[in-house]
């Protein structure tokens, strides 16, 4: 069986290589932290959950099945960790949802429109703006957008991570983009 780069690293980690685990952590740290941070919107919690994720990954690595992609397996563990946290701290996470919307509105009014009211958005600012809107949509949709675009997963891989049917994943992502479009249109952004 041909092993991909991740699987070669895992073989080495299972053989006791600390350096390989460091390499794996370096590779996934940004994506995992980014995903968790955008889900929980609290840096301290995101740091804690990211650490828990890597420790868990290391401890259950012997259970990994080499027939499947490592990233999908890892994202599933990460997803479950975040969902568990969100379920236990629903009220807190919801309060951050409200904060995020008001923060976005503040950001828009301050940074994205000049004194005359004309949009002065550069490409990077527009991209930041779009991702700020992503942060403000309900979690049910946000999580799928993050898995699709932040983690770069395909629809069937997202279905594997979230344990939702592929059809539901697609529909929710379409719905999520409709919500994004409506929110962005309200601000008069992304128009040609």
């Amino acid at each position: 069986m041909m092993l991909d780069d991740d699987q070669v690293l895992i073989k080495k980690i299972l053989a006791g290589s600390k350096a390989s685990f460091e390499e794996l952590m370096k590779k996934y740290n940004k994506k995992i932290f980014g995903f968790i941070y955008r889900m929980v919107r609290d840096e301290e919690v995101a740091v804690e959950l990211t650490q828990d994720f890597f420790i868990k990954i290391y401890n259950v690595l012997h259970k990994y099945n080499f027939e499947y992609k490592f990233s999908t397996w890892a994202y599933r563990i990460c997803y479950n960790l975040v969902i568990d946290y969100v379920r236990k701290h629903r009220a807190y996470v919801d309060s951050l949802d409200d904060d995020s919307v008001s923060q976005r509105q503040m950001l828009e009014s301050q940074n994205y429109v000049n004194e005359d009211g004309f949009e002065i958005l550069a490409r990077e600012e527009l991209r930041d703006y779009v991702w700020n809107v992503v942060d403000s949509i309900p979690m049910k949709y946000r999580e799928l957008i993050l898995l699709r675009y932040l983690q770069g997963l395909k629809y069937d891989e997202i279905a594997g991570v979230t344990e939702l049917p592929v059809g539901t994943v697609k529909n929710r992502i379409f719905k999520a983009k409709e919500i994004l479009k409506k929110e962005i249109e309200k601000d008069g952004m992304l128009e040609q």
């Binding site: 952590m25 932290f33 650490q51 930041d128 779009v130 675009y149 992304l190």
Partner: peptide
């Protein structure tokens, strides 16, 4: 256009303390 901006995600740099 929306797809284009979503396809360029903004990553937040993780604190070095994590590793």
């Amino acid at each position: 256009r929306l797809e284009k901006y979503l396809a360029e995600p903004v990553y937040i740099t993780p604190p070095p303390a994590i590793e």
